[in-house]
């Protein structure tokens, strides 16, 4: 998804910092990062899990190092000054968290924008990670990357949370690009409280230009989740002169209103932080532009519920 990058390095007493043992067959998630306390990923204070890997390659991506999934080319291994990376066998880059000081040289040399320092974490370890924070939280939001690529283990995580006496109050949300087909959403729905779906453009051409894919699947997902009562919100990344033209906004509003004009719509301001060079051709989105889009979409009958990433002075 294209939500702005976030997250100071985790400093808490995280299980995630330590090597974990994985039982054979246990569900695991490829985790790129966590934020233990966030006010911008759904209602209330939330634990946010960033999963690695995305099937889009959006120009505007704020978390580009979560896009690629390491293909073990090994380019990063000799670059690491701390000896944290190795090639124990062909096809595997091994990462040792102990010596790593997060200098991220590995990421800068990666040809596919992957991060070798991601962790493969069993679902039950994540549950224990969340437990001590539970009384401070409204819920858990999983983002990425595209979290639904790992839909199976994701469902296992949400199911474990829902089944736990001390964690059952936590609501479960995902931030998604909406490409997962309905048949694969279905097993997630019983343990998912809602999905926040990015509709990056209403016109297929523009969507293609922004993401490298058309938006047919995304639109289908929005319709499907809305009818299933699991659509928490639809998000629009406002890039001035690109996604906020009169024509585009009209088409965007027409599509969403046809599904359900009551769907909460949230605007995301485009920011440079975290993006790659090729995104910098666009200006950062001004508060005025966000206000303008909000007014426009409201006038077109949508339910705008706020924005993220707007810096007002």
């Amino acid at each position: 998804m294209t939500a702005p990058a976030r997250g100071a390095p985790v400093r808490g007493p995280l299980l995630l910092h330590h090597p974990v043992t994985i039982a054979p067959g246990a569900p695991v998630l490829e985790v790129a990062g966590v934020v233990r306390s966030s006010a911008v990923d759904g209602p209330g204070n939330r634990y946010v899990l960033f999963l690695q890997g995305c099937n889009f390659d959006c120009t505007a991506c704020h978390n580009p190092t979560t896009i690629g999934r390491c293909d073990a080319c090994g380019a990063c291994v000799p670059v690491c000054p701390h000896g944290a990376l190795s090639l124990p066998e062909p096809g595997v880059v091994a990462y040792d968290p102990a010596p790593c000081d997060r200098c991220k040289l590995c990421v800068t040399v990666c040809p596919i924008d992957a991060d070798p320092a991601i962790r493969v974490v069993p679902v039950d370890v994540l549950v224990e990670e969340i437990r001590p924070l539970a009384r401070f939280l409204s819920g858990v939001t999983v983002t990425g990357g595209e979290p639904t690529i790992q839909a199976g283990a994701l469902a296992a995580l949400f199911a474990a949370l829902k089944a736990d006496a001390g964690l059952g109050h936590l609501t479960t949300l995902v931030d998604t690009n909406g490409t997962l087909p309905p048949a694969r959403w279905k097993p997630l729905l019983p343990v998912l409280d809602g999905a926040m779906v990015d509709l990056k453009a209403a016109s297929s051409d523009l969507h293609q230009r922004l993401t490298g894919h058309d938006n047919v699947a995304v639109k289908e997902t929005i319709r499907f989740l809305s009818s299933a009562g699991k659509l928490a919100e639809v998000r629009l990344l406002v890039v001035e002169g690109v996604t906020d033209t009169d024509e585009e906004l009209a088409a965007w509003a027409e599509f969403v209103a046809a599904v359900d004009p009551g769907i909460p719509v949230r605007l995301m301001a485009f920011r440079h932080t975290g993006t790659r060079e090729r995104a910098r051709i666009w200006p950062e989105t001004s508060p005025e532009a966000v206000d303008r889009v909000q007014e426009r979409l409201t006038a077109l009958g949508l339910t705008a519920v706020g924005s993220i990433g707007v810096s007002r002075r």
Binding site: P4, L14, V40, K104, D115, A117
Partner: peptide
């Protein structure tokens, strides 16, 4: 500022070691 949100911190990939 306490990290209830750490929006816009570019070090995402560095979150987990």
């Amino acid at each position: 500022p306490r990290v209830i949100s750490t929006e816009f911190d570019p070090r995402l990939g560095a979150l987990i070691r």
